[in-house]
Amino acid sequence: MKIALLGPGHPFRGGIVHFNSRLAMELQKRSDLDFDLFYWKKPYPEFLLPGSAQSCLDKESSLTFHSNGKQFLSYTNPLTWMKMIITLHQGGYDLFITHWVHPVHFPVLKFILNFVRLFTKTEIVIIVHNVLPHERIRFDASMTRSVLKMAHRSIVHSDEESKKLINIVSINHAPLVAFMPVFDQFVTDDDISSSVRISLGLRTKVFLFFGFIRQYKGLDVLLEAFHLFAQTHADASLLIVGESFYQENKAISAKDRYLANWLPDDPVRSQIVWIDRYVPNEDVCRYFTAADLLIVPYLSVTQSAPLQIAYAFDKPVIASDLPAFHECVSTGESGYLFETGKAFDLAKKMETFFEKPIRSESVKRFRQKFSWERYVNLILGNTNHGGNGL
């Protein structure tokens, strides 16, 4: 089978970049596949980027997970759209896999996929990371509908997203409900937990929040919950790692904004360690190995890359009880769920974790169902028919 994959790659940042890179690694090692990889050279126009265009580039990481591929597709250069079409036509591919992340990609993908549909026999598979964006924009549903109806098959990562896709797009196939695989590319064999804890001044119990800070991720709920928990747990630390995705006032740090209503002499302040910056790939392991568990207090979600990084490190999680998390968190086996947006309930689950700790061996067994080998087999094993993969 001959396959082409189009997606973002280094030097761009973000979870979809890591997802695409890891998927490419899995496809490349399959001896039964003839695989070609294509990257976006410019996935967005500058005026749509948060901050400056340079802020979306990963200049910090020396470890990139980058696989060799052709990188020429540019959002702002229609000639490269034609080059992509000609390349796909001449390649005679059985399968063309790409990603739907945000309606901003509508003009490029609509143009390319329309030609692939009309002039090739290539089957189009779209991995739908977000049916609709977290921050809604005008005409997002119509743009999503227009592009996703071009797919022969759509892959989603939760039942909720599948229902949303069916409601928005009139498609003649059932979406394949897969899962978000573990992001195991960050794992190392080095035992650095103790040294990292000492260097960061962490205490005995360590909770981790990791990733871009965005409003829908519920960091304010976590801070309120930790403040409640810390009243009786002076031995606990909250480790917050990640930069703000949108930063209106560069002079004010995320820490100062989120803790603006806390008293300056509040003793709980000293129990919070805040790494307010983008973390290079090679440093991701430092924070996950140092933590006892990850907390994902999201207010809305399709899936979570930090959660699957935690599983790769055999770390349990506490997550909000959103439908997508019900599908990937097993209570008492891989973590605990709390009532979305309720700080008091999250604080109780933090207590529960240390009363009834979940061992790494349990998480390791549970995460086997989220392997990349299984994910790729779901995609390739359903190339001729629709239906659920789980």
Rank of each mutant, 00 (worst) to 15 (best):
P306F: 13
L148F: 05
N172D: 15
E26M: 03
A236Q: 05
S253D: 02
F38C: 03
D34R: 10
F119S: 12
T144C: 12
E282S: 05
S158E: 11
S194Q: 12
L37G: 08
I171E: 03
D314C: 13
F139G: 00
K83E: 15
F325M: 14
H134M: 13
F115N: 05
E339Q: 12
F229C: 06
G201F: 02
L95P: 06
Y44D: 04
L49D: 00
I171C: 06
W262G: 01
T76A: 08
A319C: 15
Q303F: 14
F366D: 06
E161A: 15
D34V: 04
P8Y: 00
M180Q: 15
F35C: 09
A343K: 11
L49V: 15
Q54L: 03
K29H: 10
E351Y: 04
L57C: 07
V116L: 12
L200Y: 10
T98F: 02
F354M: 04
R257L: 11
E361C: 09
S31G: 06
V363S: 08
S67V: 01
T144H: 10
R136F: 03
K205R: 15
H152E: 11
L48R: 03
K164P: 02
K70A: 15
F72N: 09
I86P: 01
A291T: 05
I272E: 07
G211E: 11
H89T: 11
A24H: 09
R13P: 03
L346E: 14
K29Y: 09
G9Y: 09
P357N: 10
A343R: 04
H385I: 04
A4G: 07
I166T: 12
L49H: 01
F115H: 12
D256V: 00
S31N: 13
L79V: 09
V279L: 06
I295C: 09
Q247F: 02
V221K: 11
R374F: 08
A305R: 00
D321Y: 04
P297H: 08
D34L: 06
S304R: 02
M25K: 14
E339P: 00
V376K: 06
I16V: 15
K348R: 10
C285M: 01
G201P: 03
Q368M: 03
A225E: 02
D32P: 00
S31L: 13
I275W: 01
Q54N: 11
H134N: 13
K348Y: 02
V363L: 07
K364L: 04
H227R: 12
N77K: 13
R257M: 06
Q185C: 12
A225R: 10
A225V: 01
L378P: 00
V156Y: 09
K349C: 01
E26C: 01
D314W: 12
F65C: 01
S61W: 05
I166R: 11
E26H: 08
V125R: 08
S162L: 07
F226D: 03
E327C: 04
V206R: 00
M84F: 15
Y246Q: 07
L48N: 01
